[in-house]
Amino acid sequence: MNDMRLTERKVDSKEIKIEARDVQVFYGDTHAIKDVNVDILDKTVTAFIGPSGCGKSTFLRTLNRMNDTIDICRVEGAINLDGEDIYDKRVDPVQLRAKVGMVFQKPNPFPKSIYDNVAYGPRIHGLAQSKADLDEIVERSLRGAAIWNEVKDRLHAPGTGLSGGQQQRLCIARAVATSPEVLLMDEPCSALDPIATGQVEDLIDELREKFSVVIVTHSMQQAARVSQRTAFFHLGNLVEYGETGQIFTNPTDPRTESYITGRIG
């Protein structure tokens, strides 16, 4: 695994962005997430790995309350963003999601122009005072998502006309445009080819300078390549959480070792 470049990935920040304490998630009678405690650091890429159905995506969706849209889903425990409980009654999930952005597994641009895709978030949150402001936000976000050069001449072409990798970077630009503090990515590369995956991974590394990034991935290589910290989930439990280098080279739990060596999952 030469491409893992583990030595490059050092955690620079010690500041805790999201703090999860004893989080339980239920779908009806199914106990999907059990007693998860995690501290997600600022300006860090945190990877969630684990076999299918282990609850890593479910847990990711609790971080911006996307699970609220599922009627039978119930969350217990505390998740604090900068020390504030996001499941508090006073919290409007809409405001939360402006701070905690999300990129989905399948690229899902709106069937509108590239410009409107990116401008939508700033528009509804009132981030731009003028057309020039908005233009600037759109350009900055598209540059931030490393797609500006490819689309600058056709900003008013439909976003759905782009290739899969471009669409996913457009979705990242759209998420970045609202200036979130945390960016959640749910298997952002699973629908992409290796070249597009490489572009998105490079992008994730750049994004870390500005936000805390949490990425769910099926690919252990990807986790090793892009993250500083890794959490391994298994059957709804958080088995092990630590520095990526340590998880991949010297796991403490036998289940983690089995998974990364390919015996389970």
């Binding site: 849209t69 952005g101 641009p109 609202t178």
Partner: peptide, 21 residues
């Protein structure tokens, strides 16, 4: 497709905005 609703909610649109926009 539900992905459109997710996309809108994911960048902080309210339920009503996601439906009407």
């Amino acid at each position: 497709p539900p992905s459109i609703r997710d996309a809108a909610l994911g960048i902080g649109a309210s339920k009503m905005q996601s439906v009407f926009h």
